[in-house]
Amino acid sequence: MTSEEPVIQLVGVKKVYGKGDALVYALAGVDLTIRAGEFVAIMGASGSGKSTSMNIIGCLDVPSAGSYRFRGAKVEEMTADERAMLRRLHIGFVFQGFNLLPRTTAIENVELPLVYRRVPTAERQRRAIEALETVGLGDRLHHVPSELSGGQQQRVAIARALASAPALLLADEPTGNLDSRRSAEIMQLLVQLNQERGITIVMVTHEPDMAAFASRCVHFKDGLIIGDGVPAEVFGPPSSSAGGAA
């Protein structure tokens, strides 16, 4: 795949909740193209439509109108099972709350997506260990989440997303539950994965400091994109960055 081929292509995407007078446009017509190898931060206040667009990009939800092509495939025409297969094979998820299985060791957590991909046990373990080593947790394979710090748990979650070698890594507020030092570490890890491995990353955040790590920033407001460019363009000078998130 060349870096010119779009991984994500949203055209006129609308998402509507409710009926009649209670009709709410979570997305009011969004056009967005993300190419392979990009590291995109999606910014916006709560209610701006950034989470809805994230769910649509992650194939967890379908647009009410408009079209979404994931690597050329029309997602809105897929069945729920087809979308699940697409997530299984091509998308890695990192969540704000880590969402590791409790009382399950790091390696077993990382193996989980490979279990669904029916990777044989030995191969599964090899890839899980490799992924955990990539995120710097090669010495924590058999620790359960409660024995790991928040930063370590998020690294396990990133390893889980990496293990299946996805075309797209979706991170939903990946540093939302972490202090600033751990946050920076996680962001550096994502930047490293993006630069060294060429993994396409789409990250939702409301913190301009985190968005600054991305190579491109898309700013949502009231279900529309109101800004798209390098982080500095979208927020202006770093001193006024807080205003961009409001």
Binding site: D81, A84, R87, R88, G92, F93, F95, N99, Y116
Partner: peptide, 14 residues
């Protein structure tokens, strides 16, 4: 949440 995670990473409903 575990079920949500499983579904997100590609588990089929069945």
């Amino acid at each position: 949440r575990e079920i949500g995670t499983r579904l997100a990473i590609g588990a089929l409903a069945r």
